[in-house]
Amino acid sequence: MTTTHTIHWLGAGLSSAPGIIALAKKSSAIIVWNRSLDKAKSALTNNEIEIDVRQLDWQALASTVKPGDLLVSMLPATLHIEVAEFCLKHKAHFVSSSYISEQMQALHSQAQDAGLCFVNEVGLDPGIDHLLAHLLVDDYKKSAQFSPDNQHYFRSYCGGFPKVANEFKYKFSWSPLGVLKALKSPAKWRENGEVQNSTAPWYALSQYKALLSHGYETFQAYPNRDSLPFLKQYHFQDNWDVQQFVRGTLRLNGWSSAWRPLFDEIENLDSVNGEQRLQAISKELEDKYSYQQGEADRVVMCVELEVQQAGKVVWHKSYHLDSQGNEDGQAMARLVSLTVSLAIETVFEGKIPTGVSAAPDKPEQISQWLSTLTSLGESIGSHNHL
C-alpha cells in the first residue's frame, strides 16, 4: 500500500494491534493515538517495525490531520459520531468496525458532498458476516434453483469464547459491562415466516448445529439486535418467501446454565440502582473471567442460506470460520482489525463509494478481501450441503 496520506488509528485496545501492525508493515504513514501511551506501546511492540504512538489529544490531532487522511475509530461506539464530525471538519475519511447508527447515516450526504468515505461494519460481526452473506445470496440468485416462491432460511451466527472451555463457558476480552447491557437488549428476527421479538437472550435460546471443518459441533444460539434491516442490505427482495432470517450470537453448550444466576439478577434489577449494580457485577466478572496474558481465545462464525421447495431442500450452502488465538494475537483481535485494515486500503485505492457505507457487497471485491485474509492466515471454509 502506497499513499501520501496518513492513517490515524484512534484506540489501540485489544482488538486493534494485529491490524495496526499489518498496516505499519506496508506503510510508515500511520499514527496510533491512544489515551494510555504505555498500554499502546506495550500492545504494539514488534521487532520488524517501529510505530508512531501518541497520546490521544484532540487539539494535537487537529493540528496533525491533513485533508485526505483517514481516521479509524476503535474508540467506544459512543464516540464514533464525534470522530466522524471531526473528519467532516478536517476533510478526512472515516472507518469503524461498528454498526451504522441513525446519527452516522444522517452524515451520508455531507460526507458524499465532501468526497469522503465513511465506512462502517467492517470488522468481524458486523463485517466478515456481511461479506459471506452477500456471496451466498449472489450465488443463489445465479443458480438454476432460484425462485422468489421458494422458502428461504437464512442464519448468521458468530461468537467468541475461550479455546479451552472454563466452567463459566466464557471469558471477557474487554469490559464485561457492554456484554451485560447487551443481555437486556431487545431482538427482532423472522421465524416461520413471521416477525418474532425477544426482550432478552434467555427467552430465545436455541441449539445450533454448526458444520465446521472437523464436522458438526453443537452450540447455543440466540438472535442479536434487529435482524430485519439486513434483509435489504443482503439483497433479499420483497417478493421472496422468507421463512427464517436471523443474525445472532453463538455460545458454548452449557452457557445458559452457567449464566443462569446472572440472568435472574439482571432481569430483576430496578432502574434506580441497576446501573450501579451492573458496574459492580462487571468488575467482579472482569477480575474472575478475563483472558490471561497469552491465553488463546476461539471465534466461530457460521453463515448459511437454505432454500426449500414444497418442503424439499433444493439449495443449501454455508460458510464458516473457526479461529484460535496464536502468536499474531487473539482470534477476535485479528479478525476485527485485519478486516478494518482491508477497508482502509480499499478507501485509499478509491474502490469504496463516498458517503456512509457498510462492508462491500460486490462479489469480486469480497473475494479479494477474503483472499487477503486467507493470505494473512485466516481460514474461511464453505460447504455445499446437497
Rank of each mutant, 00 (worst) to 15 (best):
C158P: 01
T249D: 13
L269I: 09
L205P: 00
N34C: 10
L10A: 08
K209I: 09
T346C: 09
S16R: 04
A22T: 03
I51Y: 04
Q279L: 15
Y140F: 14
S63H: 12
V336E: 07
V340L: 15
G215F: 13
W202P: 00
A358H: 06
Y289I: 15
L386H: 14
H235Y: 14
S27T: 15
E306V: 12
I20R: 01
I20P: 04
G178P: 03
F86H: 10
K232F: 07
H316Y: 11
S36V: 10
L107R: 01
Y291K: 05
N120L: 11
L71A: 07
K66S: 14
I20H: 05
G248L: 03
R155D: 12
D69K: 02
G160Q: 09
E167T: 12
Q55R: 12
V356T: 11
L44P: 00
Y140T: 02
C302P: 01
L124M: 14
Y203T: 11
A60W: 07
K362A: 13
D287M: 08
K41P: 05
V164K: 14
H320K: 09
K288C: 08
A204S: 15
G311R: 08
G123H: 07
W9N: 05
K209G: 09
G294C: 06
Q103H: 09
G355W: 10
Y216W: 09
E191S: 14
A114Q: 11
R225Q: 14
S63D: 15
G159C: 05
P186F: 03
A144K: 09
Y170I: 07
A111S: 10
Q279F: 08
G193H: 11
T339E: 03
G13L: 04
N239V: 01
G254L: 11
N197W: 10
H93E: 13
V307N: 02
K89T: 14
L180W: 11
S382M: 07
E194A: 14
A310G: 02
E304W: 01
S227W: 03
L370C: 11
A187L: 05
F146L: 05
K317P: 08
C87R: 02
A204L: 04
F230A: 02
A333N: 03
I30R: 01
V164H: 15
K39S: 12
R277C: 05
Y222T: 07
M332V: 05
E275G: 07
S28M: 05
S73T: 13
P229C: 14
N34G: 12
I21D: 03
I266A: 10
A204Q: 08
P126F: 00
G68E: 09
S371P: 01
A144N: 11
R251A: 12
Q309L: 06
P186E: 13
D52Q: 13
G11N: 11
A40L: 12
V137K: 06
I7F: 02
S156P: 05
A165R: 04
L71Q: 05
S375K: 02
Y99D: 06
S323K: 10
S382E: 15
A343C: 15
G160R: 06
L37M: 12
L370G: 06
Q237I: 09
L70N: 05
S341F: 02
F219V: 03
W189P: 00
S337K: 13
L321Q: 06
A17L: 06
H5F: 06
G159W: 01
K41M: 08
G294K: 14
N46P: 00
Q365I: 09
H385T: 12
E167A: 12
A204T: 06
N384L: 11
F172P: 00
F245H: 05
P353M: 08
L88S: 13
